[in-house]
């Protein structure tokens, strides 16, 4: 019964992934993409998630909120349920941009509470890690470009507001137009989010296979997930609330600072892993 509940939950994660994909494509293309099929898949995922919770309750003979993994899985389910209700009652589809990835993430973490056997081969383990590193580097690169565009935006905007437009800073040539910079920083920040999301998913699964359920107490993984959550919230606000211009530039610089801190925290973990 316990294995069956894990099976249903993992299957639910697969369906939730459709919602995640819809959000990522919407963020990159900056227009809502295949929301209806993603919502259908999400609903199926929600049903499977419910089945998993019931199965688990019978198997462990108590309400399935006894440990971290059970609690986060339950929270994810309730959030999903609330979203489906809000969508049905108020047609609040834009909330999906935020909740699809979040529910997917929570269900994924919940599904990683039961350890599996180790790596089939050392090569797969290394390849998995390399994929993570590549995705994270791509995410950092996108964010760095977004950060640069933000700084240029703030300088250009300040000059335009102060009516002192005499070329770029330090005698450099004129900066690109404000809307060009705004568009560049929005695109690169969104692209950075896609790479970071995939990078976090890959490392969470890697850590789960590597160290069973102990991965959740690893502070660097927790920092990564927290950073990703803040990134998701800011992307959501930027997209849905229409944050742009100076506010968006500061948001981008905040995300970049947060990532710099996460990177500093990660230097240790990567060094340890490769030293093995």
């Amino acid at each position: 019964m316990l294995e069956l509940s894990i099976f249903w939950l993992r299957l639910a994660v697969v369906f939730y992934a459709a919602g995640l994909c819809s959000s990522l494509v919407t963020i990159v293309r900056r227009e809502q993409s295949f929301f209806a099929p993603a919502l259908h898949a999400f609903r199926v995922g929600l049903i499977l998630h419910f089945v998993s919770l019931v199965d688990r309750a019978f198997a462990v003979r108590h309400f399935p909120a006894d440990n971290f993994f059970e609690t986060i899985s339950l929270c994810g389910f309730l959030l999903g349920l609330l979203f489906v209700f809000a969508q049905f009652r108020y047609s609040f589809s834009s909330l999906g941009l935020f909740l699809f990835p979040l529910v997917f993430g929570m269900a994924l973490v919940g599904a990683l509470g039961t350890p599996v056997g180790g790596w089939a081969s050392v090569r797969i383990r290394s390849a998995w890690l390399i994929v993570h590193v590549m995705l994270v580097i791509a995410g950092y690169a996108s964010l760095l470009i977004a950060g640069g565009a933000s700084i240029f935006y703030l300088v250009q905007e300040r000059q335009l507001k102060a009516k002192k437009l005499v070329g770029g800073p330090f005698g450099a040539p004129s900066l690109p137009a404000l809307m060009t910079l705004d568009s560049l920083l929005a695109r690169t920040m969104n692209l950075g989010f896609v790479f970071t999301t995939l990078g976090v998913i890959v490392i969470v699964i890697w850590a789960f296979i590597e160290s069973g359920t102990r991965w959740i107490s690893d502070p660097t993984i927790l920092i990564s997930m927290l950073t990703w959550f803040v990134y998701l919230a800011l992307i959501y606000l930027r997209t849905v609330a229409g944050w742009r211009g100076r506010r968006a530039a500061w948001v981008t610089l905040s995300v970049l600072t947060l990532f710099a801190l996460t990177w500093a925290a990660h230097i240790g973990i990567l060094g340890t892993v490769f030293a093995r």
Binding site: Q156, L160, L165, A177, L178, M179
Partner: peptide, 24 residues
């Protein structure tokens, strides 16, 4: 040199400023 870089009439300066904001 920057000899042809900047607008030297009020109406053209307005167009140049619009370009600084909107680009195209």
């Amino acid at each position: 040199t920057d000899i042809g870089e900047s607008a030297v009439s009020v109406s053209y300066a307005a167009v140049e400023l619009a370009r600084e904001i909107f680009g195209d």
